[in-house]
Simulated scan of single mutants.
Amino acid sequence: MKKITGMILIATMLINLVACQTSGSSYFYYYTNTSCVELIKKETKLKTDSNEEIIKALIDCMGTKSSDKKECVIKPDYVTDPTVSISNDYCLLDFDSSYYQMDSYTEVLYRAAMVKEITQLKDIEYVEFNVDGEDLVKNNKEVGVMTASDFVDDANNGDDSVEWTNVTLYFATKSGDKLIRYNRTLSHSSNVSAEKLVIETLIKGPTQAGFYRTLPSDVRVLSVSVIDGICYLNLSSEFVDEMVNVTSEIPIYSITNSLCSLEGIDAVRILVNGDSSISFRESISLDTEFEFNESLINE
């Protein structure tokens, strides 16, 4: 009897070892590197078509120790796996209070990995984290619904370390005459400034319903620098040549409010091809320092 029991245990261990290597459809999951500064993408094959089963299998893969010493499990053992609920294009992950025991950097790495993994599944676009049935809160703010583009850089883009920045962006309301806050966690190479990342993310536009574009999609960031609390932003001519369906102040203060939400920035100077002696939409002179504008925010 003991021999049979032992054989069953060995068989179970073997099944677990190959669970992330079976034939079927390809999916990716993540480890982190030994210094815990970047994500490492791994591939597995799964036979099931059930999104719930796929997510649970990917969670198991993430929690399985890698044979490569350079690859480390992201989530600490003391953090329990979440319950998974799916409704149409939305996935809810509900953790217990052990989630809040993770340090900030580990937490954002793990959250990025989970969102990227889940949104690769067919028909799932949005992911939300709960803790004990309540919205996940970071830096005294509810994180809310996330998409893959909330974590803009992919994992294996070279040897540069990855930095994570919590930012508040300002997109337009549907009416186009007010701004609405959009909290995001952005991952980026250590050689890309948070200021440039903020503007490029505004240019890409929002990914969540209820938020609307403020800048032309073709505009390019020519340069950005911060001197004595003033952010000097040099944009390509598309900023003034192409129109977005919002009032004149919205593009200016979408940029200004977003940049002024970063530490160390008190005001913004906007240039177009190096020139600030022009008027935006023939009504707003760019030859000035723009400061955070609370009155345009839709509360």
Rank of each mutant, 00 (worst) to 15 (best):
M1L: 05
I4G: 03
G6N: 12
M7L: 14
I8Q: 01
M13N: 12
L14Q: 08
L17N: 14
S23W: 07
Y29V: 07
Y31D: 15
S35W: 08
I40C: 13
K45Y: 06
L46I: 15
C61A: 05
M62E: 13
K65R: 08
D68Y: 12
K69V: 09
C72A: 05
V73Q: 07
T80P: 04
T83C: 03
S85D: 11
N88R: 13
C91A: 09
L92D: 14
L92T: 12
L93W: 04
S97M: 04
S97I: 01
Y100W: 03
Q101V: 05
M102D: 00
M102L: 00
D103F: 00
D103T: 02
Y105D: 10
Y105I: 08
E107M: 05
A112G: 09
Y126E: 15
N130C: 12
G133M: 11
L136H: 03
N139Y: 09
K141I: 02
V145Y: 09
M146A: 03
F151L: 02
N157T: 07
F171C: 02
A172D: 00
G176H: 02
D177V: 04
D177Q: 03
R184N: 02
E195Q: 15
V198F: 09
T201S: 10
T201R: 07
K204D: 06
G205T: 06
P216H: 06
V219D: 11
S223F: 11
G229V: 11
I230V: 13
Y232K: 15
E238T: 10
Y253N: 06
S254L: 02
T256V: 08
N257G: 04
L271R: 07
V272W: 04
T288P: 00
F292W: 02
N293H: 15
N293I: 06
